[in-house]
C-alpha cells in the first residue's frame, strides 16, 4: 500500500473516531488530562503582569498560516479573556495578514464575552509584516512587558525574540511545532509547549467536551503509531534473523 492510501484510511478512521468520542463525551467530565505546566503558567504570567501593572505581549510569527496559527488563536482567545477580566493591557503582534485579521476577531470576541467590549482597542493589534523581528525588539524596549507569549510557526527569529525578551524581565511562555526551533525556545523561555502540546492547548484551557473527544482520538492515533512502530520493527527483526539462520543452515 502506498503512503497516500494509508494516509487516507487513517484520516477517515481518525475523523470517525473523533466524531464518536465527541458524542460519547459531550460533557467532558471524568477524563483526566495530564498537567501541562506551560499552560498553567499562562495564568501565572498574566497574574504577575497585572500585579506589576505591565503589558502582556502575544506574538504570532511570520511562518506559514497553518494549524500552528490556529493553535495560537486558541491560546490567544484564552489570554485575551484573562486580560479582559483583569483589565490589564494586551498587545498582539502579527506578521501574516490572514493571522492579523483573524486574531483581531478572536480578541474582539473574547472582550465581548467578558462584557468588556469598550476596552478593546484596534491599537493593541499590531501588524508588522516581514519586519516583525525588529518591530518586536523595539516593543521590548518601549513597553513594560510583564508576560511574553510566543506561539506559532517560528523560524530563525525564535531565539532572538526569546533571548532578548528575557532581558525585559517578563515571564516567557512559548510554543511551536517547528522541531528545528524548539531547542532555542526551550533554552531561552521559562515554559515551552512542545509540538503537539500547542494543539491540545485549546482543549486543555477550555475543557470543552467535544474537544476532549477529539483529544481522545489523537491519543488513539498515538497509541496506534507506537504499536505500528514496535510491531513493524519486531516483524523486520524476526525476518532478518530468520533469513540469517536460513543462510547459515543452507551452507
Amino acid at each position: 500500500m502506498d503512503n497516500k492510501t494509508i494516509a487516507f484510511c487513517f484520516l477517515v478512521a481518525f475523523a470517525l473516531s473523533s466524531l464518536y468520542a465527541m458524542r460519547r463525551n459531550s460533557t467532558g467530565s471524568g477524563i483526566p488530562i495530564r498537567r501541562v505546566p506551560g499552560l498553567d503558567a499562562i495564568d501565572e504570567a498574566i497574574g504577575r503582569a497585572t500585579e506589576m501593572g505591565r503589558t502582556s505581549l502575544f506574538v504570532i510569527p511570520a511562518g506559514a498560516f497553518d494549524a500552528q496559527a490556529f493553535a495560537a488563536f486558541d491560546i490567544l482567545g484564552y489570554v485575551a479573556r484573562q486580560t479582559a477580566k483583569y483589565d490589564t493591557k494586551l498587545l498582539v503582534v502579527n506578521a501574516l495578514p490572514e493571522a492579523h485579521t483573524i486574531a483581531t476577531e478572536v480578541v474582539r470576541q473574547a472582550y465581548l464575552a467578558e462584557g468588556k467590549e469598550k476596552s478593546f482597542s484596534q491599537d493593541s493589534m499590531r501588524f508588522l509584516s516581514g519586519g516583525f523581528t525588529a518591530g518586536v525588539l523595539g516593543i521590548y524596549e518601549r513597553e513594560p512587558i510583564g508576560a511574553n507569549f510566543l506561539f506559532g510557526s517560528f523560524f530563525f527569529e525564535s531565539l532572538t525574540l526569546a533571548e532578548a525578551g528575557q532581558k525585559t524581565g517578563a515571564i516567557q511562555v512559548s510554543g511551536t511545532a517547528n522541531t528545528h526551533q524548539l531547542p532555542f525556545l526551550v533554552a531561552a523561555c521559562d515554559y515551552t509547549l512542545i509540538g503537539e502540546e500547542i494543539y491540545a492547548a485549546g482543549t486543555y484551557l477550555s475543557r470543552n467536551g467535544a474537544q476532549i473527544g477529539s483529544l481522545v482520538a489523537q491519543e488513539v492515533g498515538k497509541y496506534l503509531s507506537i504499536a505500528a512502530m514496535i510491531l513493524g520493527s519486531l516483524y523486520f527483526t524476526f525476518r532478518s534473523v530468520f533469513q540469517a539462520s536460513q543462510t547459515i543452515g543452507g551452507r
Binding site: 494509508i6 527483526t237 534473523v241
Partner: peptide, 13 residues
Amino acid sequence: LVAQVKATMLPMT
C-alpha cells in the same frame, strides 16, 4: 506521519 512511522520500522539487529 505515515512516512515517519514507516521509516521507524527497522530490524532491531
